[in-house]
Amino acid sequence: MATLSVEIVTNERIVFSETDVDLVSAPGSEGMMGILPTHAPLVTTLSAGELRVKKGNTEQSMVVFGGFMEVMPDKVIVLADVAEKIEEIDLQRAEEARRRAEEAISKGGDRTDLAAAQARLSRAQVRLKISDRRRSSRRPSDLS
């Protein structure tokens, strides 16, 4: 069966690189998209959200913020502005960032400050949301 090789790269490092992948689901700018092997060539911009890579019975979840994805029949390359594996997310730091951003917004300020705080807030929210969802979805299977 055909499979995909997947690379997720930021300008700081190669976050993820794997071959023999069965499914990639990514937050395209037009909505979530699932990529199976032998997909038609495609280039899309990405929005912020969860990116999942499924290989056999294992699944790696990541959070990405913006960037590009190039899809070829046997290959997916993601150039993310920011990307982290789910287990690398520092919950405390994200929580802290959310609190500080909310504070900054409630205090007000000039437009650029406000926009920057808003951006920090939404990044923190995405991080928290995704790692929350991951952990709650894992719990039932832990019990079984």
């Binding site: 700018s29 037009e30 060539p41 495609l42 280039v43 899309t44 911009t45 590009f68």
Partner: peptide, 15 residues
């Protein structure tokens, strides 16, 4: 490029 018919999302200009 080995492929000459890319799909662009949202569109080529934006990308």
């Amino acid at each position: 490029g080995t492929y000459n018919d890319y799909i662009f999302e949202p569109n080529a200009k934006e990308v």
